[in-house]
Design a protein around this nucleic acid. Structure first.
Length: 585
RNA sequence: CGGGGCGUAGCGCAGCCUGGUAGCGCACUCGGUUCGGGACCGAGGAGUCGGAGGUUCAAAUCCUCUCGCCCCGACCA
């Protein structure tokens, strides 16, 4: 299609809006792709919508290709469905609740497990109707505690969510693998650099899950990936290779109390005692909340120990303890538990439960807090039984750690990622609760085994910009560019306009989308906007090129090593075919 | 929810401390000169100073309350 600049709403701005912090937010605002309506709520202007639709179409094609069927569920939902699975209460403030005129409880859908499950239980009765995979591309609502980054994390956003239904676990695994492959094709076609990453499944349940992380420095998620094998994981979930036990030395130091006045932090004590941080056992006190025997919750203060130069991964701690939640104890709680100021806790002589990370447990002659203000103890050895503790993998993975899969020393490299997709095997969590059953070939009634698969479609718009931009603006990958070609006609005389119209029409005939800058503006203004909006191909027709019956062809993202200012003079007669070739890749 | 910041013209900001005619740049309108990387000159239009209440002869400015937005931390596509 052809869009004339003067006939549309294409409001580019020179100045960066003050609210925007990351590159994608700034550029999407400046380029006239989106505008804010409220916190985490955005208008998609024509350019932004075109990008969104192009992404949707790629997603739709690959979902259909993988055998999934598109449906559309309501965004406005009666509370009953979430009540069936308990999520009406569990979801908390993120659920955007509404009352209708009769006072009935409703909410706007943050995700649709319950609704599809209901849809399927009404219609599916037999194993003969399975497997199924249903998806939708739809607006979701989550009252995020903190929306940020423009459309990166909105309270209203477009998501593709798919749900698979299988007769058994093996079938669910097959569905999951099919989606994993479909997702790979989608992210690849969209021109995104990504890693498939092991993730914590969270409270949704289900042990198998993977995140599709789009690599970007501005990403909110920290991930680690092995440089030698395909192991990659969100740091929340990343395993760390177990330490190799060194041969125990012939003699161990005796436990000795030392005076360390005012040296609460690891760095301070390490410097004071002239010992490396890796010789310390860092002891943190956590309030651990567990489900009691009934509906009530119980809390307990637990000491978590990691090596001085390591960090505690609270999700691992939570999982290791089978807890509902864990959070750092307050100063008062620390006093109560250790009779000392914060900074002097240690496992030796500690009355409560202690969990120690594997890497902290193997330290020979370690230093720890003495549970007495301004004192530490040295010569602590877990191997000798100096303290009692449960050993677990507690530490946060970091760059330079050993790979747990292939064992490569220092194999972990750290990245930042944007969670673009997440795939889960749900099992029968929802189908059991909602009695979504089928009858198998032997006549037995069983819950359907489910999986769910999300892609943050509107988030991908921003993610693509994070990966593809420079100081001048966006550099859209061809597959999702709002228009393939930015056509600049530098004069508004009859000859130039006619040449522009002829080229635009010829391109349109070949299926190329053209944004024609026909404004009465100086060339500099047009070039700046062309760079900002970021169409992959810029074509310029001016008096100089017209004299040669030619146009100028310039790529927004030229091959590395080529002069970024270079352009090619192409005869007008050949231009459309030439450009269409570039568009098709 | 904890902490920090900001609401003044469409956008970016100054003015507030020390109350007294609301200002600058960009954008916009008109006229002219320009015309290959965000031109220049001249003239103009545009603001309930987020809202409510209070103090005062007088409030953008001081006080109280309120709404909105942004940023940093715990949650998630």
């Amino acid at each position: 299609m052809i869009q004339r600049f003067t006939k549309g709403l294409l409001p580019t701005v020179k100045e960066t809006p003050a609210d925007a912090t990351n590159a994608s937010h700034k550029l999407l605002l400046r380029g006239g792709f989106v505008r804010q309506v409220g916190a985490g709520i955005y208008n998609f202007l024509p350019l932004g919508l075109r990008v969104l639709r192009k992404i949707e179409n790629v997603v739709r094609q690959e979902m259909d290709r993988s055998g999934a069927q598109e449906v559309l569920m309501p965004a406005l939902l009666p509370a009953d469905y979430f009540r069936e699975t308990g999520r009406w209460d569990l979801y908390g403030d993120v659920l955007l609740r509404i009352k209708d005129r009769k006072g009935g409880d409703y909410h706007l859908g943050p995700t649709h497990e319950e609704i599809v499950t209901d849809m399927v239980r009404r219609e599916v009765k037999s194993y003969r109707q399975l497997p199924l995979n249903l998806y939708q591309i739809q607006t979701k609502f989550r009252d995020e505690p903190r929306p940020r980054g423009g459309i990166m994390r909105g309270r209203e956003f477009t998501m593709k969510d798919a749900y698979s239904f299988d007769v058994d676990e093996a079938g669910a695994v097959t569905s999951y693998e099919t989606m994993r492959e479909a997702y790979k094709r989608i992210f690849t076609r969209l021109g995104l650099t990504f890693r498939i990453v092991q993730a914590d499944s969270g409270a949704i349940g289900g042990k198998t899950s993977a995140e599709f992380q789009i690599l970007a420095d501005s990403g909110e998620d920290a991930i680690v990936a092995c440089t030698h094998c395909d192991y990659a994981a969100n740091v929340e979930a990343a395993e760390v290779a177990a330490p190799v036990a060194a041969a125990p030395p012939a003699t161990l130091e005796a436990i000795t109390k030392v005076h360390t006045p005012g040296k609460g932090g690891i760095a301070d004590v390490a410097a004071f005692l002239k010992r490396g941080a890796d010789q310390f056992v860092k002891s943190l006190l956590y309030v651990v909340v567990k489900a009691g025997p009934g509906a009530e919750k119980t809390t307990e203060v637990v000491m978590a120990c990691v090596r001085g130069d390591h960090e505690v991964n609270e999700i691992k701690l939570q999982n290791a303890l089978g807890a509902l939640e864990v959070h750092l104890a307050s100063e008062a709680d620390v006093w109560k538990a250790t009779s000392a100021k914060v900074g002097y806790a240690g496992p030796v002589g500690f009355a409560g439960k202690v969990v120690v990370d594997r890497h902290a447990a193997v330290i020979v002659d370690a230093v720890t807090g003495a549970n007495e203000t301004d004192h530490h103890v040295t010569g602590v050895n877990f191997s000798r039984g100096d303290y009692q503790a449960v050993i677990a993998d507690l530490r946060q993975a970091a760059e330079g750690d050993d790979c747990p899969k292939c064992g490569t020393k220092g194999g972990f490299k750290a990245y930042k990622g944007i969670e673009g997709g997440h795939i889960f095997i749900l099992g029968t969590h929802y189908s059991s609760k909602m009695k979504c059953h089928f009858v198998d070939e032997k006549g037995a009634e069983k819950p359907i085994v489910m999986g769910c698969y999300g892609i943050g479609v509107s988030r991908l718009v921003a993610s693509a910009v994070e990966q593809h931009h420079d100081a001048d603006g966006i550099r859209w990958p061809m597959a999702i560019a709002p228009y393939h070609v930015y056509l600049c006609t530098l004069a508004n005389d009859e000859a130039t306009t006619a040449a522009g119209q002829a080229l635009a029409s010829a391109l349109e005939a070949q299926g190329v989308d053209v944004l024609w800058d026909d404004r009465d503006e100086r060339p500099g203004v047009k070039f700046k906007d062309a760079d900002l909006i970021g169409c992959p191909i810029r074509v310029t027709i001016g008096k100089k090129t017209l004299d040669q019956q030619a146009c100028e062809l310039k790529l927004r993202n030229p091959a590395p090593g080529t002069d970024p200012k270079a352009f090619e003079l192409v005869p007008l007669a050949d231009a459309a075919t030439r450009i269409a070739g570039l568009v098709r890749g």
